Amino acid sequence: MATLSPDSERPAGAERLELAGDLTIDRATDLEQLLAGATGDRLDLDLSRVGGIDTVGAWLIHRTLRDRPGSRILGASAEVARLVEQVAAADRPCPVRPAQPPIWLQELDKAGRATIGAVISLGEGLGFVGTTLVATLRALLSPRGIRWHAVSRQIEETGINALGIIGLMSFLIGIVIAQQGAVQLEQFGAKIFTINLIGRATFRELGILLTAIMVAGRSASAFAAQIGTMKINEEIDAMRTLGLDPIAVLVVPRVLALTIIMPLLGFYASVLAIIGGGLLTWTYLDIPPASFVQRLRDVVPMSDFWIGMAKAPFFGAVIALTGCFQGMRVAGNAQSVGEHTTIAVVQSIFLVIVLDAFFAVFFTAIGFV
């Protein structure tokens, strides 16, 4: 059993303590009380009879030497001395909270990280688009072909089940466009041009754009959440184990479904917006439906209709690819599903607006104004 014995000799004004036995954690309380009870300003600690020591004993010895300047250890074995030195070397002040860099440097760091993340995401996204195109071509050339049953199921979920909310939104948007246009144009005695505003804005831009935004919020989030949950549950890994391509099984049907259904949804939304605008002009401007329809035919060129319909498949493909891409990037836990679902909605809406701006400039440049 370890013993701790003091020595009453005090050469040169120092109190001498002779320690014996093992200075380990189970004797820490006794050792601490003995060292604390020493009355000398400095201590000579005789460790010649110490058998074993651990980091707790070494820490108590070091703390005594640190807190009582001039204290020293005598007769320590090489092992004991080495452990005390190692504990002393590790005794350095550590700030509780790391020093913060200047605020401008923090913001610059955030901007740099965001830029690097955007570049990486862009590269991975382009790679994902290429992989999806290859999987689509492979499916077309395969004897089994496209999984049309899965495509039809996605058309039902993303298109048919969305008719109610898209129709209501478009109808109300048509009313809002007509009302705001009528209020402004009536001041100049040009209320008849409200029909021009409704027709051209709806068929060329707002009908398909607002539909794409609604579908992005509804379907891109669903795609990301569905695929992300499957990835967390290791269902995608199970597909690969069975020899199935997750891109061909999960991504291609969703991309084809939205590419097919978006022109139909855009046309449906445009018609509902026209009906809403027509009802407003009938009740507010006293323009009968027959006159509204005739004026609409005269002022809205077919090019506006075809421009809107031409943009729709691209919007649908971008929305589906973004949702599936973010779903495939999910990793870790359920929090990652929520994060990537949010990113999918934001990115798909952003890309739709960017793509719409590109088409607006493009069609104007080639003469479709």
Rank of each mutant, 00 (worst) to 15 (best):
L31A: 09
F188D: 01
A162G: 06
L206W: 02
R329G: 02
P313T: 11
A269I: 01
K110C: 11
S303H: 07
P313F: 02
V354D: 02
P101W: 03
W59A: 12
Q294P: 01
Y284L: 13
M230V: 10
A114D: 05
G127A: 12
A38R: 09
A2K: 13
P101K: 05
V271P: 08
L296Y: 08
P98H: 11
T211C: 04
R200Q: 12
Q326S: 13
F314G: 08
V318F: 11
T132F: 06
R49Y: 09
A81N: 08
L65A: 03
K311N: 06
L285M: 15
Q179T: 06
I103K: 04
G112V: 07
A225F: 12
I173S: 00
C94T: 14
A178I: 00
L31Y: 07
S336G: 05
E235D: 06
I260L: 11
I366V: 15
D298G: 07
D298N: 07
S336Y: 10
G217K: 10
A28L: 08
A28R: 12
P289D: 02
I343T: 08
P313D: 12
I307K: 06
D44A: 08
A111G: 12
E107G: 01
F325E: 07
W148V: 04
P6H: 07
E85T: 13
G145V: 04
L47V: 12
N333S: 14
I260M: 09
V354E: 02
A36N: 13
Q326H: 08
V352H: 02
V369M: 15
I232R: 14
E235W: 12
D67K: 03
V330L: 08
I165G: 08
T131F: 04
W282Q: 14
K191Q: 11
A320G: 10
V183A: 06
W59G: 05
A248D: 03
L279F: 15
F292G: 01
G159T: 05
P98R: 09
L265H: 10
V56D: 10
A334D: 11
G308P: 04
T283H: 06
L23N: 14
I195D: 01
G174W: 08
R10H: 10
D46W: 12
E156H: 13
V255S: 11
M239V: 09
E107Q: 02
T229H: 09
R138I: 02
E9S: 13
